[in-house]
Design a protein around this nucleic acid. Structure first.
Lengths: 238, 238
DNA sequence: TGATGATAGCTGTCAGACAAGCAGACTGCC
DNA sequence: GGCAGTCTGCTTGTCTGACAGCTATCATCA
């Protein structure tokens, strides 16, 4: 179980300009008191305001549009669809809060996916799950934490794919970056053995098409995972 | 309950070029046998191949990147992250399948959101829920089906917001277009009365911070909603 | 052999251009 | 006065060309 905690030269953040603009506009939605229906500044104005090119603003707005936050209408402008969460509470341990929310999200979606997978899995989907699991298992020997988390994600998404629900698949795939980040964090605490066991049970349940057992396997994986507490441990130890 | 089924001039499709490119590339991921790690054609090549400008391709790839389907790396290219579902089964009634999947998705996410909302709702979040519900109720009198569906979505997303889980909020918001489409379809079958009742029970549960009752209310709303069967009715009646 | 530097192709970003959509003002007619 | 049609200015949608910065590859040289 030699997970190299390599932190290669402490990983320069290197985010893209578009992502920064996305974050900036999300921030505006929070703070400017814009309610649903408000018109945003035009792309041109935004590009000046933020000091970037119009194409950069467009790519950002396109993503926000697909997230359902804004809606662009040709000739009219871009409008706020929903309002963001007013205040991100508990600013001090924002990371811990996000981590906790992330596991809540998994807990909400994974049991449903496991059930669907057990109900519908084709034989090829089952092979895909097993293959991902093989790669995951092999990766535990000699991968960096992040690489292993990526393999673990592949395993989980393969279960969603076996469930054949495009909405759930899309929703889960969208959290891939968070998965890698947070699972990587938690992994350093070393709950690998239990996770391995859980994977085996889950695959077996899906394999014999037993939805109840699949759901149970997933839910057991979350039991006594008080993430916030772990986060504290991580913070004090690191 | 005068939902005008207006179908104003049967609604010209009018999709944007970027969305077509997104669909085209998703199709490629399906059919070209690209596995995770495969490099896509360069943006320049894609723009030629699809007969559009490079910025259009870029906006599409940016969205696909945020969906977690591809990943662009500066200087290297764009790579497939996960593989799409191999074959969308049951091509004949694809709409019915999507509708069914959509309600599966709601069923997976809404109970979790209801529970969180009941646990954490701030008083302002509760006001927001009640306000959305007022608008929704009023809209039932004199809105088009689509407008009403949009109001209903606002109501539901306000519950997610009260739950204060950014991952769930994002996931739910992303299905807004589908919500409006499919809820609009189902509404024409007229289960409005029951829905109204459900909304009342849910708000009450959240209001008195009773997670179990909130979850129960949401789940009752899905009981005996055999969506596929309804879809058939819709098809034969329309 | 091994380090070094040039190179070619890629994404990231920008600026400028034009088409098309839309609301509101404006004009001319009845 | 009322109204239909037109004009105008602003907006998004799309395309093009340009350049910077990144990276793997490969030839070059010590």
């Amino acid at each position: 179980m030699a997970l190299r905690t390599v932190k290669a030269l402490e990983k320069i953040p290197r985010t893209t300009l578009v992502d920064e603009v996305i974050a900036a506009i999300r921030g505006m939605l929070d703070e400017e008191g814009w309610t649903a229906g408000t018109r945003l500044p035009s792309e041109h104005q935004l590009s000046i305001q933020l000091g970037v090119g119009r194409s950069t603003v467009r790519e950002a707005l396109r993503v926000l549009g697909h997230l359902g936050l804004v809606q662009s209408r040709s000739g009219l402008g871009t409008f706020v669809v929903g309002k963001e969460l007013a205040v991100r509470h508990s600013a001090p341990d924002q990371e811990a809060e996000a981590l906790s929310q992330f596991f809540e999200f998994r807990r909400a979606t994974e049991p449903a996916a496991a059930r669907l997978a057990a109900e519908r899995r084709s034989s090829s989907a089952l092979s895909a799950i097993k293959a991902s699991w093989q790669a995951c298992y092999a990766g535990a020997q000699n991968s960096s934490v992040d690489d292993f988390a990526a393999l673990d994600f592949s395993f989980h998404i393969s279960i969603f794919e076996a469930g054949e629900n495009q909405f759930l698949i899309d929703a889960y795939r969208a959290v891939r970056p968070s998965f890698i980040k947070y699972v990587g964090m938690v992994l350093e605490l070393g709950p690998l053995t239990r996770m391995m066991h859980f994977h085996d049970k889950l695959i077996e349940a899906i394999s014999r098409q037993d939805p109840l057992a699949a759901v149970r396997a997933v839910e057991e994986n979350f039991v006594d995972t008080d993430v916030r507490q772990r986060m504290m441990m991580l913070q004090t130890s690191g």
